[in-house]
Design a protein around this nucleic acid. Sequence first.
DNA 1: CGCAAATGAGTTGCGCACAACCCAATTGCG
DNA 2: CGCAATTGGGTTGTGCGCAACTCATTTGCG
Lengths: 143, 143
Amino acid sequence: MSTARLDDQLCFALYAASRRLTTAYRTTLTELGLTYPQYLALMVLWESDGVTLSELGERLSLDSGTLSPLVKRLQVQGLVERRSSTEDERRVHVHLTDTGRAMSAEVGRLQQCVVDAIDLDADEFVALRALARRVAHLEPTPS
Amino acid sequence: MSTARLDDQLCFALYAASRRLTTAYRTTLTELGLTYPQYLALMVLWESDGVTLSELGERLSLDSGTLSPLVKRLQVQGLVERRSSTEDERRVHVHLTDTGRAMSAEVGRLQQCVVDAIDLDADEFVALRALARRVAHLEPTPS
DNA sequence: CGCAAATGAGTTGCGCACAACCCAATTGCG
DNA sequence: CGCAATTGGGTTGTGCGCAACTCATTTGCG
């Protein structure tokens, strides 16, 4: 019997591709003082300013153990504020500051990083994104 | 102007898909006492026992800062041995122990995790893997 | 040969991911 | 109302990823 080979694995292809694209962003993001997950969090806020931490986590598939310190670092950078909800003291709403909102103007440069980096035509790009989304949104396997 | 939306981003789709598949493996890997990157390293060794650390890193696109401690943990688990090369004292060859070699028999269960988890037909699986590999193997952008 | 440059591996530090906790605020059932 | 269960957020600990560094070995050029 032949052992399964690394390069046959879908999981490794996705893992390597994800890291490769993150690397493509890194230079520009570092200039902005951001990490890649911080950038993703800001994208959610540019769309939906004032979401709660748990809503942010739902959007990014990240739990409080990851997001709590991440948002705190964005706060230290002066990009967001935390405001605890008045109707439910447990909830924390994350609001962009003017600085954080202004940073969305730099996004064009970031998109260009990927366009420059990848060698896919428009159809392939769309197909890859659609298939990856399918995998990303799978329900947890009912064990 | 419309800000770029998170769900339009290829990078986020790949990032989320990769984490989703890793999660699919997690339960079974945890039973085996392995992490996902440790499992990938073992796959390389099942194919190419005795590779050096840098060859292993080339295969997985990981540097010594990640691999050195990872392989040390595999060694502590008794799955691999390190032997420094006789013709070049700098090189460290990583060899499977019998225990480490035997673990490849469990792989079938792991592959089944993905098959169970994902909802892609054979054509989609192959297409996604091929496109992801294309992205993974991109040359560094010449800045 | 002698020595500077390159190479392979390791360490340190930081920021994710994620499991396993904790605690306070809220909900809802009796 | 009273209290147990739930919920939202936070902390701690482990293991990546990766940059930046160190160090010993080896290479190669004069």
